[in-house]
Nucleic acid binder design. Structure first.
Lengths: 325, 325
DNA sequence: TTTCATATGTCAATCGGTTGACATATACAA
DNA sequence: TTGTATATGTCAACCGATTGACATATGAAA
């Protein structure tokens, strides 16, 4: 790898001059600038960002922790975050925590060692102290850690109300909610709260099942939903906390010989690509993934630049009516 | 952020001693080691990897370029790659090229500036020179760039034969293949070759449609497949080059009132999670994503360590029979 | 008593690039 | 002629950690 010295030698100027060209500082004649650029091109020179970051005390790297990008919601979210980050001159160090607390802690330490400028958390097992202690700019998804740490979420409560109301309007008599693990202190739990409230307001029988802490084991989804149906054969409406869960619910309905939407109405959450791809296509609550990713990047960069940002960032949700309800 | 000097001061030893503890070099008494560790803990010290990487000329970062992690195949693959990389002490800088040549070039430059130790390419638009020129350890997926650059692929030809043969055995009379863009010099094109060969060996009428270069625009998939069906109403078998495409094919069949698998047999490729989730569940050719990800990490690390690795790494594929064929 | 393994310290160079202070030189305008 | 904006160079310090050379001190074995 050529260094700035090689460029200086090749261009017949001093290292300082090359640095001035590189950083647009001081006076440089067009001729010199040309020479330096030519030398950089000839050598295929790329400035060593490690050295620059070390000096500048800024790496332009954002650490991104998600449960796993193999889950389509996080795949889509990460894709958008990376897009906007790159556009703003930042790079993404990707971490898949698989919701393991130990691994998440290791990741945070690793990211600190690597001097990331900020942290975006689409994950959520850790206790608060850990984050606070890290003293890094942080943005979280769907989790309110403290007054000081900004978070981004969809309007979970409203989403829950809309979905449950739709089930009620469809005349469902016994509805179920499939939630993530409610022990995790997530804002997504408000979907559950709304579900219960709307059900009770309307005197509709309702049950809830929780997936366990390791939420992204697909085979587990199926089993849990299967058990739900076995225990409650008369369920005729389901509000699933993700489209993936909704898809599994459709599948399980099928194995029980129950037609969707004729016998059972199903509503998902997220509105990921596969929601429209499934057959029947999934009626769902849309989270604006692109905008949420964009804002995450914006909020983290503003914090890095020392600006104040709002703590609470709730995006409106919309009902996307398709075939399952 | 505390530095090694702060630790030294706190522990009442010299910087050299702390460094010796940190790197397990030279003689250190247990007592001193204890003191140093205590100081590091008290200060919540994390060594600055930028500085270490700069000195060591090694960043332990792997650059990973894929079209986009929002595509489930790459989401699953990236998840596995990151898993194995982290386990081996490497970090992943994630890049979504969206198959844009310009962006891919920018990414490669960026990764070089950031001193990545190696490059894993799940993407493929660039001309060869660019890679060779970068002189980095590289592993590619599904693309043979040169004799010197190792690649990983599933046995595309065999997969194509198995899939097409199955369609023929099902008695299909007119079969279609939905491929990616064949102008990209991908090994996946062998699926197409196998498709044509098996069709001709068996005297079965066959057509092919290509998706255009920007492969991951989902709305485009649907339109292309729709047009295919409009042009060839009598198609009764489809071999799609990915499960996502297969899913769209199912959907389009539905809009044309054609039943799957009764009227049209469909076979996908990849065996991503949603293949089993779809209804009907997709019969597909399994690529061992986990093993492929593991090998990618192994091959890149071996190269980083200066070891020789085999160029050609083909994984066997298996037919996963489900409901669509 | 000598010798040597153990234990720790000081010092300076290095990784690659940035920056401020300061010197010097040219050209043009006042 | 003087002053000043432009242009470039030299030099050293710095970012945080690593390392080799070398000094020094202690305790135990020979």
């Amino acid at each position: 790898m050529p260094t700035i010295k090689d460029v200086a030698k090749k261009a017949g100027v001093s290292v300082t001059t090359v640095s001035r060209v590189l950083n647009n500082r001081g006076y440089i004649s067009d001729a010199t600038r040309q020479k330096v650029h030519q030398a950089m091109e000839d050598l295929n020179y790329q400035p060593n960002e490690l050295a620059r970051s070390l000096y500048r005390q800024k790496s332009n790297i954002i650490g991104l922790i998600v449960p796993t990008v193999s889950h389509p919601f996080f795949g889509e979210l990460v894709s958008r975050i990376e897009y906007y980050a790159f556009r703003a001159g930042y790079k993404i160090l990707l971490c898949n925590s698989h919701l393991e607390q130990e691994k998440e802690k290791d990741y945070i330490d690793m990211l600190r060692r690597n001097q990331v400028d900020g942290l975006i958390l689409g994950s959520h097992t850790l206790d608060v102290e850990e984050y606070v202690l890290s003293k890094l700019p942080i943005v979280t998804f769907d989790r309110c850690i403290s007054d000081a740490i900004p978070y981004i979420a969809s309007d979970n409560y409203e989403g829950g109300r809309i979905a449950t109301t739709l089930l009620v309007e469809h005349g469902c008599n016994k509805i179920a909610h499939i939630s993530g693990n409610l022990e995790l202190d997530l804002l997504a739990n408000k979907r559950y709260e709304a579900f219960v409230e709307v059900a009770e307001e309307n005197d509709v029988e309702h049950v809830n099942i929780e997936t366990s802490i390791n939420v992204f084991d697909d085979t587990q989804y199926e089993k849990i939903i299967f058990d739900l149906f076995k225990a409650h054969q008369d369920i005729d409406g389901i509000f699933a906390s993700s489209d993936v869960m909704a898809a599994y619910a459709i599948k399980v309905c099928h194995t029980f010989g129950r037609k969707v939407p004729e016998d059972v109405k199903i509503i998902g959450y997220d509105d990921i690509n596969i929601a429209s791809l499934m057959m029947p296509s999934i009626t769902t609550i849309n989270q604006p993934i692109d905008e949420m990713g964009e804002l995450a990047v914006e909020l983290i960069i503003k914090q890095i630049e020392g600006k104040k940002v709002p703590t609470k960032n709730i995006f409106p949700v919309t009902l996307v009516k398709r075939e399952t309800a």
